[in-house]
Design a protein around this nucleic acid. Structure first.
Lengths: 194, 194
DNA sequence: TTTTTTGTTGATTGACGAGTCAATAAACTT
DNA sequence: AAGTTTATTGACTCGTCAATCAACAAAAAA
């Protein structure tokens, strides 16, 4: 009983299922069969809409990245002033949503994918570029000439703190992460000699 | 023509081959057959010595970690004074050896493994603990009460910078990485109000 | 109403992979 | 010399999996 206009629905279900399955297994070692079953359809249909497993992975990556982007934009929308906006970016980066098992799994595996899949590397570069640009807008008014360097450091620190927080067995603590990064920021800003 | 005492030689060859194959494929999706072939033996022999592919992965992880540990110890041995020793740790962490394709591949995939394999997580915790302890020894004399916090930040920043450097298409630059981390350190140390 | 487009799947193909086993052979022990 | 331990592999088991195909169903277009 084919209702028309299924494509976007099926694709969304598959993307979702891909992320969940990657999170569940903790690796890219998920079968199309698993993904399709979780999305409630046959493997043949999954292939029909995406053509290959690789395409599903990339679509999933795009989705995770766009969710993160949306979260940052949402947080920025209600923040005013450079400091407030910086806080907003950090809070969004370390939000509980980003520490959900499947999101962590997605990120770690995207790093792995980025080693060999050019498109994955490109997407990662886009994410890093956006983060950097967002940080720079906030930093230029308050860090002046140091803005570029501080943005680099902040970006790396965010990734590093996330990585550690995501991989220590204990429940991740966004508050502490934000505080750690803010501490770095304050150190850079209040340093006597630029 | 079985010569005796082959076990350590074969195991070393397999560990090496595992790392190379992970680096080559960029993922944990390597077959025992590939590993065994690169190590110059049959798959049956590989299983004979390690029992499972998982055991090979863990042995490879231990090896990469121990190489890194040795590099740090080596650098520390010829450095005196807290500052010098900190520089030594950073230089070792961002040495060209650590940016070789197969080492990057190993690290990224160990992160992935750590999500699900408790032993891998344990090994990662050991590495982070050692790094933290090494940093603390240097930091206490020069950072005093701030030492703990700075060590946390430095550790995360090192991981984050490494991750970014390893994944940007361009050739990784250890010098710049060291400089970035040192900049953070100086900012924390020279901050007026602790 | 015929044709085309869209949705859908069971069955199949063709390939590969982890781990086991039996068998062979050389070295070391007694 | 007989027995044991270590080294080594080809062949095999049992399983999986990505991708394709043929076929069917329903809606839309002609």
């Amino acid at each position: 009983m084919p209702k028309l206009g299924m494509e976007p629905i099926r694709k969304a279900a598959l993307v979702n299922a891909t992320i969940v399955e990657i999170g569940r297994s903790g690796s890219l070692d998920v079968t199309v069969s698993q993904i399709a079953k979780r999305a409630g359809m046959s493997t043949a249909l999954a292939h029909h809409y995406f053509g290959s497993k690789e395409a599903m992975f990339l679509a999933a990556m795009r989705h995770v990245l766009s969710l993160y982007g949306a979260e940052v934009r949402g947080a920025l929308a209600v923040a005013s002033g450079p400091e407030q906006r910086l806080h907003a970016i950090l809070r969004a980066s370390f939000s509980p949503a980003n520490f959900r098992r499947e999101v962590v799994g997605a990120w770690l595996n995207f790093y792995v994918l980025a080693q060999t899949l050019p498109e994955a590397r490109r997407l990662l570069a886009v994410y890093q570029g956006r983060l950097r640009s967002n940080l720079l807008v906030c930093l230029r008014p308050i860090a002046g000439a140091k803005a570029e360097g501080v943005a680099n450091g902040l970006g790396a620190l965010i990734d590093g703190v996330y990585l550690r927080e995501a991989l220590t067995g204990t429940a991740p603590d966004g508050k502490t992460s934000v505080a750690l990064v803010l501490d770095y920021l304050n150190a850079e800003l209040k340093r006597p000699r630029p």
